[in-house]
Write a protein that binds this DNA or RNA. Structure first.
Lengths: 213, 213, 213, 213
DNA sequence: GATGAATGAGATTTCATTCAT
DNA sequence: AATGAATGAAATCTCATTCAT
């Protein structure tokens, strides 16, 4: 999995006070709105440009295509999606809870983008690659964490760490999808507690007194 | 959740020996192939017709649109996807394993359709509704099963049964998606065992001697 | 102008009790209905066949095309449209009135056909020719009648008989069109009286006591 | 009858020197030619675009459909068709003659449009409405004029002014149709004199010395 | 830097017509 | 005599993209 992310092709060249910069921002924001309403394949360049208050031709001054615009949005959101604060003074249970919570919040923040991204990834190798690039660190971290727990005797050693990491991250991301994209109404606290409990118990992590609730 | 599914608009009118019936079958099979290669939005009626060995016009003799064809495929696959054999002489753990296995096999059988279906559902209310109709029984069954285990003291009563049912079915279906649609290579046995273990342990179900491996 | 009308290509070959004869009748009647609703150009062979209760393919067993069907209808109606009863014991004024009345009644009887016919004639030479063939006798008769009145000193000799015949027959047919095709509501008596008066007075025919009203 | 005509949707937005304006003009002119050759229903957008020297897509930049283009042409021609110069120092006979002449000239100028218009009106309510809107003023004016003559004792009071107005305007427009659309060859002077004489005499208007032809 | 205008290349859909049964 | 089935050949309309200003 590549850790070298291509730097953003557009904004990196642009001073933040320029007119061009503003135009790009408008297009990016318009795109998120249009993608939310129509999805990636059905979104039209014309709609995005119109919503941004510029002409279609202007769109092409900045992005070679709809795909390129999505690429821009994805690369822009990448750091925020990957960000994690590692706190060392947490119990295993707390660590599961805080990373679940962080993931759900990041997903919520970028729900539309996540949706469109996975839509595009289904038929576009580069987008699929970027998605892998993003999932990768999560999976790797989860897998490492499972192995550590197994070594410490805190998690059942019968589990295949790799498969379990895939399954559990999938559980959370799938839950986030139905919640933030499909719009099923969940309560945050209950959602976080349920996912945390399932995750932790499935690995055999025991709840300590401090973990309440 | 509705259990009355509309009967299929095409085949129900057609004797199975007629030429028309054969044409519909060819179109349906061709559609699955084309959908697999191009996805729903990018698939073209022309490609489907060509692959089926008929003219575009013939397509429209049977289906009013691409959407209608998908609807046909979905309704046709519905019974197979919903089918379950309830065996009563299983331990809880075995029951988790066999339903996981059955789900994965059904998903594999209809992987392309599941993919296209979810793609279309993202922007089509009827398809989304059908997807809910299909998920519904699974969710309800899972929820009931969790409650029963809780009542019997076999599963942790701290869990919210509804949320847990969503999370766990999502875990399995998401795993199936990456496996059969995204094409990540998993070994069947290991996948089934891992998912079963995670599911069972997360609920606090204990493995009995018979449940090996 | 040709007086030899081609004999009808279909019914002439058909015994009136046969199934084929009935099918042709159904198609002809259905066609009039469909033409009335959609006009000639927008009427579809499929609609006509469906309304007749037969398949599209059956249509082509009897008519080579939509045009041919219209030709059939026109030729069938021809005799009725041309029919006139010449009564010799009428005053000139009465003769104008009775031919006006007869024309209006014939037009009403065949309003849809007249409409479709003129629609088709605008872009089809054969139909245009048939329309001329039908108008011809009227024009000729009118022209002769004007000349006779002029010779007898009953009509102004300043008028060009040919032009006047065209104008006056056009007046009546145009009135019939707005009445029976466009659906403007007229009272029959008033319509006949007005048209008769205009026609007669324009030629200088004087009303005699018997002509009341 | 509405006198508020919707202002033209296209040209009103366009400066007369712009390229777009020129394109619209080319399309409008091409349309008249194509309509003349093929009629409205058979005319194809592709032919119009080709004749105008632009692509089909360009057509749709300006008109949403063939119907909309016709609407444009009709609204554009409206003022010219309604224009009348009222001269007060004419005898009744002269007034009939000059308005007949004016009508025929306007019809000739826009013969193709009149033809297509009536073709479309037969199956399109908006076009039919516009046609009524255009006929309305003529009919009203004619009717008023007949009543005035009746009050002055110059025209037979036995006539129904409304019916007579319909019949006489129909006579002239029908004559114009056969002349300019069907292509029957008439001499202008003789046509105008005949129509004028018929119209005037039918109402009982007497020719004065000045009226010689 | 922005955009008005134009368009190539299709996509969907329609329908008159034919063919084999 | 009738028709189920298939289709060729368009017709309409769309949209991403380019060009010239």
């Amino acid at each position: 999995m590549s850790t070298e992310l291509p730097s953003n092709p557009v904004t990196s060249r642009l001073g933040s006070g320029t007119r061009a910069f503003r135009t790009v921002r408008q297009l990016a924001e318009a795109a998120v709105e249009v993608f939310e309403e129509s999805g990636f394949h059905l979104a039209q360049v014309g709609d995005i440009a119109e919503r941004a208050g510029v002409s279609r031709a202007t769109f092409y001054n900045y992005f070679a295509s709809k795909e390129e615009l999505l690429r821009y949005l994805v690369l822009e959101a990448f750091p925020a999606l990957l960000a994690t604060r590692e706190t060392t003074d947490e119990t295993p249970w707390q660590r599961v809870r805080s990373s679940t919570d962080a993931y759900l919040r990041a997903y919520e923040q970028h729900a539309t983008l996540m949706h469109v991204w996975s839509e595009a990834a289904a038929r576009n190798d580069e987008m699929a690659g970027l998605l892998r690039d993003m999932r990768g660190p999560f999976l790797a971290r989860t897998e490492r964490s499972i192995r550590r727990l197994q070594e410490q005797g805190l998690a059942s050693s019968a589990l295949d760490a790799t498969y379990a990491a895939h399954a559990l991250t999938g559980m959370v991301s799938n839950f986030a999808y139905t919640w933030f994209v499909e719009g099923v109404a969940y309560e945050r606290d209950r959602a976080v507690e349920t996912l945390t409990t399932l995750w932790a118990c499935s690995l055999g992590i025991e709840k300590e007194p401090d973990d309440l609730p």
